[in-house]
Design a binder for these strands. Structure first.
Length: 302
DNA sequence: AAGGGCCTCAACCGCTATAGA
DNA sequence: CTCTATAGCGGTTGAGGCCCT
């Protein structure tokens, strides 16, 4: 289907804005406020399409826009947020007063991405931050450092989905154990009755291995409100997210830690998002992780 | 001085989400 | 429910400036 262009009218100007055009736009918006972008150009005496006017205002002319170089603190925030949220420029911009999504996107692509690559030797792909120190030329997965207080990274979004799906069943201790990678909780030795299928404990151990950036003590320190939100929502709110970010127990370099089980994480993400990916572990049977987890939780509740 | 390559960033494009008729 | 208008988002483009040879 061919999309109707947003500026189909003849005589619409494109390209760089002149100071005169800027003045006309500013004067009109100061008088009438934002909105009504489609009819604005004609009323303001501009030969531009409404969308162009809106973008010019939002990205350049708005009085609250902060211009100039990014501070080291802003750099740090962008890097951390990008690692968690990916290319969600508007979401990242919401945490940086006065910065626009467009500005942050440009800054990332022209500065931060390269800097991360040079300094850390990491592929600045969000979530994964895989090591690129591989002789094969492909991304290698570094072994985890078990001495670190913060487990190697996984996906906060993955945990969001897991937590969301099983919010009613999870309690704080259980989730804390899961997040902190307490593998023994799910081992066969903990299951003398044989209620839990070995494949299920394998699955849960894998979930534990893909533990997120947060360690158990961090989780116990966050507020109940935040924790409940974490459990009950598809995506955590900015307030909750900021609470996680500002928690001192989260390591500064947690964004750069590596993932010990990327393949499984991607697999599980696929399953939880409903794309029907499979987990097959030492078995010719096809195992649905979501179903398996429900089964396990049912066992725990007995 | 010239010109070619690279970099930056404002602006545009195409798409989705949402609200309202 | 469907359609349309509008807002918002992320990816891409290209003009202009800078640097190097």
């Amino acid at each position: 289907m061919v999309r109707t262009p947003c500026c189909k009218e003849e005589g619409i100007k494109k390209g760089a804005w002149t100071p005169e055009e800027d003045q006309k736009l500013i004067a009109y918006l100061q008088l009438h406020g934002e909105g009504g972008w489609r009819t604005l150009p004609e009323k303001a005496g501009l030969k531009r399409c409404g969308k162009s006017c809106r973008l010019r205002w939002a990205n350049y002319l708005r009085p609250d826009i902060k211009r100039g170089e990014f501070s080291p603190e802003e750099d740090d925030t962008i890097i951390k947020l990008h690692a968690l949220k990916g290319n969600k420029w508007a979401a990242i911009a919401a945490s940086l007063a006065g910065r626009t999504d467009n500005e942050i996107k440009n800054y990332w692509n022209t500065n931060l991405k390269k800097r991360i690559k040079q300094k850390k030797g990491l592929d600045p792909i969000p979530i994964t931050h895989k090591s690129i120190n591989s002789s094969t030329g492909q991304n290698a997965i570094e072994p985890i450092n078990n001495n670190k207080p913060v487990r190697s990274s996984g996906s906060a979004r993955l945990l969001n989905r897991v937590a969301s799906k099983y919010a009613a069943e999870f309690n704080r201790d259980l989730l804390t154990g899961l997040i902190s990678g307490n593998r023994t909780v799910f081992g066969d030795s903990q299951n003398p009755s044989g209620k839990i299928d070995p494949r299920d404990s394998t699955l849960l151990n894998k979930v534990a291995e893909t533990s997120v950036y947060i360690n158990s003590s961090t989780l116990s320190d966050i507020s109940d409100n935040c924790f409940n939100e974490f459990l009950s929502n598809e995506e955590i709110s900015d307030n909750c997210f900021n609470e996680f970010l500002s928690n001192e127990k989260i390591s500064d370099d947690f964004m750069y830690t590596t993932i010990d089980n990327i393949e499984f994480m991607e697999e599980l993400k696929g399953i939880l998002s409903g794309s029907g990916a499979e987990v097959v572990e030492n078995s010719s049977d096809e195992v649905n992780a979501a179903d398996e987890m429900e089964f396990i939780i049912g066992c725990w509740n007995e």
